[in-house]
Write a protein that binds this DNA or RNA. Structure first.
Lengths: 235, 235
DNA sequence: AAGTGGTCTAGACCACGGA
DNA sequence: CCGTGGTCTAGACCACTTC
């Protein structure tokens, strides 16, 4: 018997081989159900999976088309710094530089979407790999959303790791860029002359409320992000 | 009546609110079906969607748990350079610098996984936004996989755009990093003194055969990658 | 109006894997 | 063993959208 995974793979093969070209219309569910000798529901499952994977576009009455691909996708999983370093056998160290509850500067107000009179927790910390500075973490936590953060000293655990464990989030925004370091970056990261930094800026939200905004600064020579993407889920 | 999307959202809410904590076991399908007054199949659909979205982990007999989140996810859609520039109203220009069929240097052999005697198409080109260099594209195309590329001059269309239209791929690998420019980068991109570059390296594959390897170099001051990620599909 | 996908139900059997 | 998730079928009705 044909399972919906079998059908998924057969359809995937037809797309990859070009038998069904990009942008082309493919047979209706009912026809494929006949071809494969199963119910329409089973074909539907397979096609929905392909649609979720971004390979098909489906519209009632209009039918199902192979997506015309216009972008390349890159999916990163950014681990907790400690895990990343320990996983490759490195020696991890964490250092808290500063922690204070303050009203937020205008630039951060915009990121967190909080008022000028509200305060937030500002935490500056440094992550080391084998004794060398690996990441500077400059973080703001919205206390209105995460009051629990007031109770945490962040002496022993980094804000990044603490937040990931304690606070769920619904969406996030990332910005990646290359830049010349600020004097402060340089001071903390002990950069070589002329060495650029790789910056990740991230804001996370829980429903409509901002949770945190962070600027993660890495020395350029010792950092890169790598991803391996499947064009379609294997199932 | 409760649809599986309704159920999906209810379950999602219980996860977000912390009613079902990270790592915790949640009720079995049959129990939830009873609670919501629908079939087990409908609950199954909802839970599978959450599992696909990476929010639940399911094992037979062991039951379903809320995922203990250990990474942040960032999903990028990297558009065709021309589209990117035109979309924000910029003036796009493409310039082919060089195109030759050669045996590949050892470094690229490793990336493409092809033999030392096989040849590939090496194409160097430059993309401009409003008259200023925006991206240097240094590309190798495996002619064994894409013989059609021999017929294309790449005078008028960039290899990036041509490949995306012509050649399907099954998986890709990306590396993002910040670096000091090479003299050649500097020469083509007309960089300011000390300005870093943002480099994207990408290799794509069609099943087991490498399609292409490319090094995309951007001036640091005018480039950043931005993403907005939903923690879970909205459905 | 009619074609196409979206989804539900009831019942059934299977597959995995923990106790 | 047996509880839990995985999946199928047959039939049905609905929802959207193009013709």
């Amino acid at each position: 018997m044909r399972s919906y995974k079998d059908i998924h793979n057969i359809l995937l093969e037809r797309i990859k081989s070009g038998e069904w070209p990009q942008g082309g219309l493919i047979p209706a569910e009912a026809d494929l159900a006949l071809e494969f000798g199963c119910t329409r529901v089973t074909v539907n499952r397979a096609m929905q999976a392909l649609a979720d994977g971004g390979l098909l576009e489906r519209r009632r009455k209009a039918g199902t088309r192979v997506i015309q691909r216009l972008t390349r996708n890159a999916h990163f999983q950014i681990p907790i710094v400690r895990h990343e370093i320990e996983k490759r056998g490195g020696n991890y160290k964490y250092l808290l530089i500063g922690r204070e509850e303050v009203t937020v500067p205008q630039k951060v107000q915009a990121e967190l979407a909080i008022g000028p009179d509200e305060s937030a927790l500002h935490i500056l910390s440094l992550h080391f790999a084998d004794g060398k500075p690996y990441q500077l973490e400059d973080r703001w936590i919205a206390l209105g959303t995460v009051p629990l953060a007031r109770e945490e000293s962040f002496d022993a655990i980094s804000p990044n790791e603490w937040l990931l464990q304690q606070v769920p989030y619904t969406n996030a925004e990332h910005v990646f860029r290359a830049a010349q370091p600020t004097p402060e970056d340089d001071d903390h990261l002990k950069l070589a002359p002329g060495e650029p930094v790789f910056i990740i800026e991230r804001t996370t939200w829980l429903s409509d409320k901002a949770v945190t905004h962070v600027r993660l600064v890495h020395p350029g020579h010792s950092f890169q992000l790598v991803t391996r993407d499947q064009n379609a889920a294997t199932l």
